[in-house]
Amino acid sequence: MRVRAWLFLLLLPACVAPARSASDYEHKAVDTAEAVLSSVQTGSLVARLGPEQALPPYLSVSLSDVERAAASARAVFLSIQPPDARSDEVRAELSPLLDRSEAALADARIAARRQDFGALTRSADELSSSASSLERFIDRFG
């Protein structure tokens, strides 16, 4: 019994709690935007490094890592039930930003794996634009 209690306590940090109020939901939305912003900013920086400053496997692994992280953050956020109409609006505003960020990271990863460095540089611009949108969202609701 004691072992179960300890296991419960240790695994507790990994759980996603439901949003009970609009402000709680906004808080989770900002956390998600910040997590995806971290991935997008990494993607942008890595894409700009290009083959002159980074070894091709590094580009590919870094972009895969952050694409997976962004996809996971997006999936967790979209699985949270919005508690009211105000939260629906927050969800409607953030959801396309998350989709766009994930798509831009996927484009960068595909370009890096194909060693298409022209496309990689172009994806860096798209990632920067996604980062700006996420930052605006964070500033508004944060």
Partner: peptide
């Protein structure tokens, strides 16, 4: 400064 968390070895 860029809001990047170091969650991966690549970062």
């Amino acid at each position: 400064p860029r809001g990047i968390d170091a969650d991966h070895l690549s970062q």
